[in-house]
């Protein structure tokens, strides 16, 4: 099966960008929890009103998806489109789990935050983007496994092959704070921070920058035979 990358977006403590920039991506851990993000009004038109109040995980995911869609020439549209979203994550929205649960400890749960509870599901970030950008394809969150974002990339390719979407976005989102490496989750390793997504199409419109991928069994390769071991391998690669 052949699939084309037609866009991408990423955000990280070190900066943000799009696939068509031709630059590499750096999601490496940072001592600072601050994420470099574009201004909301540059990402969402009309505005995504809750964006400013999102947790780090949701904010990073929404920003990277917005950048990727714009890069692929797929801005918000009035009509529903069969575009799907698959993300992967190592820590998902666990930070929000703790934030929500703290709100349940007063008055025996009577003051629990319904809003925070909703965001304890790792897929809410995809639901936010599906609703804002009118994307009606499959939306799934996967556990990150081997190679940055490859689990999501393979699942997105399977859904394209099965004809369940016209376009799929695949990416990884991490919103864990920089202190988690010492908090007993994965001792000795600092979690990555940020989000990266690529847009995948089987039959892209002509005129856009495109990178052709060849997918056989579980292998994903570039047209020139180069093996893709991470979503980051798709960035900074000439189309």
């Amino acid at each position: 099966m052949e699939v084309y990358v037609t866009g991408g977006g990423w955000v990280a403590p070190q900066g943000y960008g799009q696939w068509s920039d031709g630059r590499g991506v750096d999601l490496s851990p940072s001592d600072s929890d601050a994420m470099a993000l574009p201004r909301a009004r540059d990402l969402f038109d009309p505005p995504l009103s809750r964006y400013g109040r999102f947790d780090r995980y949701t904010k990073a995911g929404c920003a990277a998806i917005a950048l990727a869609l714009r890069d692929a020439g797929l801005p918000r549209h009035d009509e529903d489109r069969v575009i799907g979203l698959v993300s992967s994550s190592l820590y998902e929205s666990t930070q929000t789990d703790f934030d929500y649960y703290r709100t349940t400890l007063e008055q025996d749960g009577a003051l629990a935050s319904p809003n925070l509870f909703s965001y304890t599901l790792p897929g809410i970030v995809l639901g936010e983007c599906a609703a804002h950008f009118t994307l009606t394809g499959p939306t799934l969150c996967l556990g990150e496994k081997d190679g940055l974002g490859m689990t999501a990339l393979r699942a997105a390719l399977s859904l394209l092959r099965a004809g369940k979407a016209d376009v799929m976005l695949a990416g990884r989102i991490e919103g864990a704070s920089s202190g988690w490496g010492e908090a007993g989750f994965e001792k000795g390793s600092q979690p990555l921070q940020g989000a990266v997504f690529v847009v995948l199409e089987r039959r892209p419109a002509s005129g856009l920058s495109q990178l052709r991928l060849v997918c056989e069994n579980e292998e994903v390769r570039l047209e020139n035979g180069g093996r893709i071991a991470s979503l980051l391998d798709l960035f900074g690669t000439e189309s």
Partner: peptide, 8 residues
């Protein structure tokens, strides 16, 4: 598999 694209 499909999304409502409506509300979270």
């Amino acid at each position: 598999l499909a999304n409502d694209a409506n509300h979270i």
